[in-house]
């Protein structure tokens, strides 16, 4: 499954990092602790979080994650958007909270 597939299936809003929408998805990871993601997320996973600052993109890029989903309609910071575009790691916005969107993504994968 690709990032573009979950955008359609889960009705997510693509905010930035368009060049990565063909990234292949291997799974998902849910955490708002950056060290936890750094230590435990795996390449190709979609990361669901409420953190909006730039360091989210540094981690997503260093770990080769497929995409980041921001929950509850949150907005990424301006420099977060910039880095998402540079690194080609898409940020997708969900209206749902973490529990709901994680459940839907789990079902889909």
């Amino acid at each position: 499954m690709k990032v573009s597939d979950i955008i359609n299936s889960l009705d997510l809003e693509l905010l930035c990092g368009q060049s990565g929408i063909e990234n292949e998805i291997t799974g998902g990871y849910v955490s708002d602790l950056l060290s936890d993601v750094m230590g435990n997320a795996k390449e190709g996973q979609v990361w669901i979080t409420l953190q909006t600052h730039k360091n989210v993109m540094a981690i997503a890029s260093l770990k080769d994650l497929a995409a980041v989903i921001l929950v509850k309609g949150f907005n990424p910071d301006e420099d977060t958007v910039k880095q998402s575009n540079q690194e080609g790691v898409p940020i997708l916005r969900a209206k749902e909270n973490t529990f709901e969107i994680a459940g839907k993504l789990f079902q889909l994968l």
Partner: peptide, 15 residues
């Protein structure tokens, strides 16, 4: 608040 400081850093480095 930024999501750091969970006390996992040094263990992550070692691992």
């Amino acid at each position: 608040e930024m999501g750091f400081g969970a006390g996992m850093g040094l263990a992550n480095i070692k691992n």
